[in-house]
Design a protein around this nucleic acid. Structure first.
Lengths: 139, 139
DNA sequence: ACATCATATCCGTCTTGACATATATGTGGG
DNA sequence: CCCACATATATGTCAAGACGGATATGATGT
């Protein structure tokens, strides 16, 4: 019942204002920054953003329905990766936005946290045995 | 009471998700496309978008408070023009978005309507004696 | 049974449109 | 000059819906 606006048009491809809607939230921007060039599973988001799992899951659902990310299940784990929108304009704006995010200190901090978490996953209860994120060829 | 989130941060410059919020609406995108490279007064928006004047005025207020457009009064008329955000990242994304809009058929139709309306303003009751839009040096 | 993740529900806030009304400026008459 | 009155634009109010966070519960795989 929620997010019906986005859901309604998700299948037709992302029109510009829908893309902007998807980008108009700090949590989603942080998620996108982490997803940008690696396939990564949900437990890392929970550990890095330090927010509740349902909250993250909802924002990921939002991005999925907006056609910006795609998910793949591997056993217990769900891997998320970027899904470049078919719409050329939307795709370009998304790429540029991700590029800009990379320069933001807050975003760099998230990436740094990801690195440290990956180097010592055994230190984080949530990440026991979690699959490592895999870099993805830059689109 | 309305738009408090935007109002709260408007003076500090536009953070990325606030810019996206401002862009996440079709009406505002149409307005921005018309404003992009000319200073233009409100009555043209009403005539071109064919929507209610309060609706347009509200969206313009939204864009104003988001720091994306600026207004200037000249007698009865209010002229709106683009206001490039101080934040370099936001400014770049805005410029690129406007560039992309230019390619969209719907937006080109609006520009076409603007031209025809400007050539024969006497045909439109709303535009009797309204000042002509003035092109602005491309930023 | 447990771990990982997704969805439902509740609640407060924001957004949006429609409609009514207020404000600001210009104009003409006394 | 002051007063109506028209014009251009802005704002208040209301209702409907969307959003975002928190919490509880469901689904899926080991």
């Amino acid at each position: 019942m929620m997010y019906t606006l986005l859901m309604a048009k998700a299948h037709t491809g992302v029109s510009l204002d829908l893309l902007f809607r998807a980008l108009a939230d700090p949590t989603r921007l942080r998620l996108l920054n982490l997803i940008a060039d690696r396939e990564i599973c949900v437990c890392y988001f929970v550990e890095i953003l330090k927010t509740s799992q349902p909250k993250i899951s909802r924002h990921l659902a939002y991005l999925r329905k907006a056609g910006i990310v795609a998910a793949r299940r591997e056993g217990k784990w769900m891997h998320y990766r970027l899904a470049v929108p078919r719409d050329e304009v939307a795709a370009k704006i998304l790429r540029e936005t991700l590029g800009h995010l990379r320069g933001k200190p807050e975003m760099q901090r998230d990436i740094a946290r990801l690195s440290s978490v990956c180097c010592a996953p055994q230190k984080f209860v949530l990440l026991q045995g979690a699959p490592q994120p895999a870099l993805v060829p830059t689109s």
